[in-house]
Nucleic acid binder design. Structure first.
Length: 601
RNA sequence: GGUCCGGUAGCUCAGUUGGAUAGAGCAUCAGCCUUCUAAGCUGAGGGUCAUUGGUUCGAAUCCAAUCCGGAUCACCA
């Protein structure tokens, strides 16, 4: 009964449980899983998993050899379904897991396309990501945000959480007014429709024009003797933008209608990009809605004495006792600052979803901001505060350094996606393996491969680290890439198309598992734990690395061992099941990254 | 200056609740396609894990200091 139970568990917990039980019986001492480590055995030694004995020696008053021998003996004798043999090298007890166990892992799961996914739990998590400004198109940095946010939401879903994906549109403020003013001054009524330019790019162009005009005006004013600082403030186009912000806040009809029209253009453009890259949201929030609630909460906090007013009427909070600074919450003219609307948004989200956790996928340059936000929400006694979690990610840099708007080194999201798909098409055509594909099938394949390469390249880096985006490397389709993983999937499916596995077949234990057969099953067995790890760490790169591992091991396996012309019917059925389960796990893992896998490529 | 994050092969990255001789990919070199997809496989070379000290059976991993890089400390968002 007990051994059956252990056999049904994941292998590491199974080993831990067996060790604890054995030690209790051998030495009448109760250990916990924290008291010893179970690692995968290094390839140069015999065995599959290793119990590190050092930490147990003192409490049990045993020598490494004595403990290893009695523990190894006991484990193998009492758990014949789990362990087949052991050896001891220094303080390491190497255990060979029985082929029965691995055969069961394979046979019990190989057809299950939901393998690795957990039962639904009752926890609700809000994942906010993307969060664009509505004055310019998305760039490379946004792509990292979108890919991370979408993927982490899927990973948490797989882990059993109820997920709500949200997006806050930063749709108001001085930056929005800048593109509006520039349009009024320079557009002569042009529209995305009249020019054929995608809406977000169209509006972004006017944002750039604002900057150029502003620069000119500043120069003129400085030539007249103004300081740089004064010139920047006094430039006519800047004055116009500031006036427009005031008019916007006052609800001036002409300004509001222009704002709506131009934001509408941007949203149309965003929608196209989001659809291409696979971002979607369950709920959109708009800063133009949330900032008023934020202001109200600031008033409340003022009344409660949590905030204070300075002589000039600006509102602040003193966080010096918490090791931070004083932080402004409302300008002296009564208008909202950035954090004001975030307080409102936190409350909005909590009221709507009563979340257990609220994740914000936002760059690490805002670490301080989110520390402050959480602290303020706590001090206001908002129930939303506890769940606030900033999923902070590092900046994306180019080999030449940071992307800089002024130097025109910003990599546009639409451009890079176009380029990836284009090159994917060229490389695919070069290989000439899909000449029988119809036009629309080819188009879909190029999309799948190109976009996958981009997502994989960006997601393979630990989110919290900043990363270098090398366009040439990202566009490579060999080695540690999405194409490699996709290729492995297509290869497995090609074998299975030739001959499907016989589901009724009973695998025999007479032929021992070969190294590569066992290696791949060991890897596949880890998948549920890998999802849990990625979820706990909020880290899709865990999945990326795992998918690559599986693909690499599978490629070695397929090169080394014939599947359809195997040595025996038993080996053929075993290997067909390995192909099936590998394909399922690759498809499942890649899906968690937002990456599709093609049947052929 | 205060706070936070990072530094692993020529380059890009894994590995950090302390475990055996630190791993991949790219790039370089040498092999492998009448055999289920060569976007592949096999092998070689490449390392003071920033530096110094400490903790212990054992440190890339933990602690301290130093050096280097980045972020942030706005009435910007």
């Amino acid at each position: 009964m007990q051994s059956f139970k252990i056999q049904e568990m994941a292998v590491i917990p199974g080993i831990q449980l067996a060790v604890i039980k054995a030690l209790e019986e051998l030495y009448a001492q109760t250990c916990s899983i924290k008291d010893f480590q179970v690692n995968q055995t290094k390839p140069e030694f015999e065995g599959d998993y290793t119990v590190v004995l050092f930490t147990l020696l003192k409490p049990l008053k045993q020598s490494p050899d004595a403990l290893g021998k009695s523990l190894g003996e006991k484990l193998v004798n009492t758990n014949p379904h789990l362990f087949s043999s052991y050896n001891i090298i220094k303080g390491f007890l190497n255990l060979t897991i029985s082929d029965t166990y691995w055969n069961n892992v394979l046979s019990n799961n190989y057809t299950d396309i939901n393998y690795g996914r957990k039962e639904k739990n009752a926890k609700k998590i809000v994942v906010e990501y993307s969060s664009p400004n509505t004055n310019k198109p998305l760039h490379l940095g946004h792509l990292r945000n979108n890919f991370l946010g979408w993927s982490i939401a899927e990973i948490l879903k797989a882990e059993g959480y109820y997920i709500i994906k949200t997006c806050i549109a930063n749709d108001r403020g001085i930056h929005i007014c800048k593109s509006m003013v520039a349009w009024q001054w320079f557009a002569n009524g042009a529209t995305p429709q009249s020019t054929g330019i995608k809406g977000d790019h169209f509006v972004g162009d006017y944002y750039v024009m604002f900057g150029e005009q502003h620069k000119k005006e500043v120069k003129t004013l400085m030539d007249k003797g103004l300081s740089k600082e004064d010139a920047e403030k006094e430039a006519p186009i800047m004055k116009a933008a500031q006036q427009m912000l005031v008019d916007w806040e006052a609800g001036k009809p002409g300004v509001i209608s222009l704002w709506k029209i131009m934001n509408g253009w941007v949203y149309e453009g965003f929608e196209v990009t989001y659809k291409r890259i696979g971002s979607d949201f369950d709920k959109m929030y708009y800063e133009s809605d949330t900032y008023l609630l934020g202001k109200k909460l600031v008033d409340d906090g003022l009344k409660k004495g949590i905030f204070f007013k300075k002589e000039d009427n600006s509102v602040w909070i003193d966080l010096t006792a918490d090791g931070l600074d004083e932080k402004i919450l409302q300008r002296k003219d009564g208008t909202a600052v950035y954090i004001t609307q975030d307080i409102g948004l936190a409350v909005n989200k909590y009221e709507e979803f009563t979340y257990d956790q609220s994740i914000y996928v936002v760059g690490d340059e805002q670490n301080y901001h989110f520390k402050v936000l959480k602290l303020i929400c706590e001090k206001l006694g908002l129930p939303s505060s506890e769940g606030i979690y900033h999923l902070s990610y590092g900046m994306v840099e180019l080999p030449t350094g940071r992307m800089k708007t002024r130097e025109g080194t910003v990599v546009d999201a639409d451009d890079i996606v176009d380029e990836m798909i284009k090159v994917a098409g060229e490389k695919t055509a070069e290989l000439g393996k899909v000449k029988d594909f119809a036009e629309d099938e080819l188009k879909k394949l190029y999309n799948t491969i190109g976009l996958a390469a981009l997502k994989f390249f960006i997601l393979r880096v630990d989110p919290k680290k900043r990363m270098v985006f090398n366009p040439e490397e990202s566009i490579d389709f060999h080695g540690f890439t999405a194409s490699f993983v996709q290729f492995s999937y297509a290869r497995a499916k090609a074998i299975l198309r030739n001959e499907a596995e016989d589901k009724a077949y009973q695998l025999s234990l007479a032929e021992p598992l070969l190294h590569l057969e066992k290696d791949i099953i060991i890897l596949l067995e880890k998948y549920p734990a890998i999802i849990s790890q990625a979820a706990a760490e909020h880290n899709p790169s865990v999945i990326v690395n795992y998918c690559y591992d599986v693909a690499k091991t599978f490629n070695s396996f397929v090169t080394e061992h014939r599947v359809l012309k195997a040595e025996s019917e038993n080996k053929k059925q075993l290997r067909l099941r390995i192909c099936r389960m590998t394909a399922n796990v690759i498809a499942s893992g890649m899906a968690l990254l937002g990456i599709e896998v093609p049947e052929r490529m």
